[in-house]
Nucleic acid binder design. Structure first.
Lengths: 334, 334
DNA sequence: GACAGTGGCGCAACCGTTTGCATAATTGGC
DNA sequence: GCCAATTATGCAAACGGTTGCGCCACTGTC
C-alpha cells in the first residue's frame, strides 16, 4: 500500500537507482531531476524503508537500550539523555525493559541484534561470560559495569560511598549499616567494597544486610534487619531503597535524622520531594546516557576503542543525616 | 560476519528454503533434516534476521510506543504493562520519547512506521488532523484521547474529576481551583468540562488557572496563581503538578489540608510517599497499556475494529484533603 | 575535429529472508 | 506392481532498497 521506490521511479520517469541516489547521495543527481523526483516522492508520500536499506548497508540507524526496570526513577533521565543524543546524530533509540530478569535480558539482545547498530546494556544483571558471548552478535556498550575489553561507562560510586561514610563519621557515627542491593550488580559490590574500606580507615564498623531488590518495597521490608544491626546510620544501595526505609522507620516511630541517619545513592527527583529530604550521592545519569551513545557510535564508526569512562559522583547533604545520637538507640522495638 | 541462512544451508547440505522452513514452518521439514539443520545452525550461532524476514512477510513483530515524557512517572507502569503484554504475544516493544514536542512526535511515527507493525500513541499532543494523516502510514492506537474512527483507550477522567469535586464539596468546599494541564491534552479538556459541570451542579464555583506543563516544577510555579483564586481546595491536572503545588504551599507556610485541600489525578507511586499523602484519582495505567497492545494486535490481525475502550477511574482519599476551613484563608501572603 | 575527462543516468547484482510452484521420493490402496 | 496421494526438498521470484560498473552525451582542450 505505501509507495515504494519503484512507484516513485515509474511516476517520475527515471530508474530506481536515480531515486535511490536522490535520497542517499543527492550530489550525484542532476538538480532538475532531483527536484522532479523529490516532488513526485512528496506527492506519493514516499519514504525510504529504513529496514530494507539496512539490509544492504548494514546500518539501521537505530540503537537499542536495555534496562532492568523502566519504573525505577533512576533510569528515565538516562534514557532521555541517550534519546536526545542519539536523535541529534540521526539515530533512533529503542528502549526495552527486562523486569530485572537476566533471561529476558539475553532474549532482548538477540531480538535487537539485527535491528539496531548497537546495544546499550544498562546495569546488566547477566554474567560477564554471557556479555562476552553476546558482544559477538552486536556491538555493546555497558553502563554501570566495567567489562574487560568492552566500552563501558560507570559512575564512581566508590568515591561516592567513601564520601558518604566520611560524612557520617564526621557526624560522630561509629556503627553504620549498609543496605545491600541486588545480587549480580557491580555497583553493589563496588559500594560495599569502598564503604567497608572507608569505615575501616575511620575506625567505624560497617554491617551489611541484604541482598535486596532495588525497590522501595524492599527498602521498607529491610527496615527491621537494618535496626537489628544497632547502627546509628545507614547507607542504602539506592535512593529508592532509602526512601522505602524512611517509610518503614516512620511507621515504627523512629525519627530521622535524630535517631537514625540515612544516606541514599542516585539523587533521583523523588529524594527532594520526600520529608526529610534525602541526603544522597548524586550520580550523573544524564551524562552517562550521552556518553554511552557517543561511545557506541564512535566505536561503531572507527577503530574499536574500548575505553572505560568513569563519571564523577557527588555527595548532596540534605536533611536525612545528622549527628549521631548521644545514647545509642535501644536495638529493636516491636 | 554473523551467520546467514546461506551459511547454514551450505554447512548442512540443504537448500536455503529448507533452512528457512526449519525455522518458520518446522512441520514441513523431515524431523531428521530438521534436527541436523538446527544443530548446525546452533553451532554457527545463526539467528534469523528479523528485518529481512519483515521485508517479505510484512510483519516485524515489533510495536512502537510513543510517549511525551518517559520521566513522567505516569508512564512507566503503562510502558511496563504494554511491554509484558507484547512479549507474551511474541512481540517486542520499542519505546520512544518526544520531550513533549509535537514535531518530534510526527518524526517518530515516520521513523517507526516501517519497523513496527503498529504504533501506540500515548497522550499525543499533535492535532487530530495529523493523526488522521499518519494512520495511513501505520496502524495506530491512541491512548488518552479518543479519535474518530481509530481504536483508542481512554480513562474515564470525567468520572474521576466529578467524584473529586463531589468529595471536596462534601467537605464543605465552595470555592475550588482547577490547576490546568498542557494545551492540546484531551484529558485536560475533559477534566475541565466535567469538573465545571460537577461544581455547578453542587453550587460551588470553579476557577481554572493554566495551562501549565504537566510537571512538578510547573505545579510549584503555579502556586501563587492558585492562591489568588481564593479557593479552599484545588484539583490538579495530575499528581506531579499537585505535588509541585504541595511543595510551593509548604514553602509559603500554608498547611495542607487544614488551610487548603489538594487533589491530584493519576495515583503515581510518588503520591503515597510524600507528606501529606496525596488524595488523588487513580487511573488504571497498567490496564491501559495492556488494552492498547491488545487492540493493536487484534486490529492488525482481523477486520479493522475501531472500538473505544474506556477504563474506569477511582478516587483514593488520603491525607491532602479535609474539611473546608471555617474562616476563608486571607488571599495571598508574600 | 579527434580525444580525454566528466556528469548523469541505467543496468543488474546483491542484502537475508519467505513462499508458490515444480519435482522427486515415498507411501498406501487395490 | 501400477496409480494416486502424500511428503520432503529444490528452484527462483519476490520484498525495498543500494551500489559498482558501464554507457552515453556533453564539455573543453589542443
Amino acid at each position: 500500500m505505501p509507495a515504494t521506490i519503484r512507484d516513485v521511479a515509474r511516476a517520475s520517469g527515471v530508474h530506481v537507482s536515480t531515486v535511490s541516489r536522490t535520497f542517499s547521495a543527492p550530489h550525484l543527481v542532476n538538480p532538475d531531476t532531483r527536484s522532479r523526483v523529490l516532488s513526485t516522492a512528496e506527492s506519493l508520500g514516499y519514504r525510504p524503508n529504513r529496514a530494507a536499506r539496512a539490509l544492504i548497508t548494514g546500518r539501521t540507524h537505530n540503537i537499542g537500550l536495555i534496562v532492568a526496570d523502566i519504573a525505577n526513577p533512576f533510569f528515565p533521565p538516562l534514557i532521555k539523555a541517550a534519546e536526545s543524543q542519539a536523535r541529534s546524530r540521526d539515530y533512533h533509540l529503542f528502549v526495552a525493559d527486562t523486569n530485572e530478569d537476566p533471561v529476558a535480558e539475553e532474549d532482548l539482545v538477540h531480538a535487537l541484534a539485527k535491528q539496531v547498530d548497537g546495544v546499550l546494556l544498562c546495569s546488566p544483571r547477566m554474567s560477564n561470560d554471557l556479555i562476552e558471548k553476546l558482544r559477538k552478535e552486536v556491538p555493546l556498550v555497558v553502563v554501570n559495569r566495567p567489562v574487560e575489553g568492552l566500552p563501558a561507562v560507570v559512575m564512581d560510586v566508590a568515591h561516592g560511598a567513601r564520601t558518604a561514610i566520611e560524612h557520617l563519621v564526621a557526624h560522630g557515627h561509629r556503627d553504620i549499616a549498609l543496605l545491600g542491593g541486588p545480587r549480580g550488580s557491580w555497583t553493589n559490590r563496588e559500594i560495599r567494597r569502598s564503604a567497608a574500606l572507608a569505615a575501616k580507615a575511620a575506625g567505624a564498623t560497617l554491617t551489611a544486610v541484604g541482598p535486596y531488590q532495588p525497590t522501595e518495597a524492599a527498602g521498607a521490608a529491610a527496615c527491621d534487619a537494618v535496626l537489628e544491626t544497632g547502627a546509628t546510620a545507614v547507607l542504602a544501595y539506592n535512593d529508592l531503597m532509602a526512601i522505602g526505609l524512611l517509610e518503614g522507620l516512620h511507621d515504627r516511630g523512629i525519627r530521622v535524622p535524630e535517631e537514625l541517619s540515612v544516606v541514599g545513592i542516585d539523587d533521583i527527583m523523588l529524594s527532594r520531594l520526600i520529608r526529610p529530604k534525602l541526603t544522597t550521592v548524586a550520580t550523573p545519569t544524564a551524562a552517562a546516557g550521552r556518553a554511552a551513545v557517543d561511545m557506541l557510535l564512535q566505536h561503531d564508526e572507527e577503530t574499536r576503542t574500548t575505553a572505560l569512562v568513569t563519571l564523577q559522583t557527588q555527595l548532596v547533604v540534605r536533611d536525612s543525616t545528622g549527628p549521631a545520637p548521644a545514647e545509642p538507640r535501644t536495638a529493636s522495638r516491636p
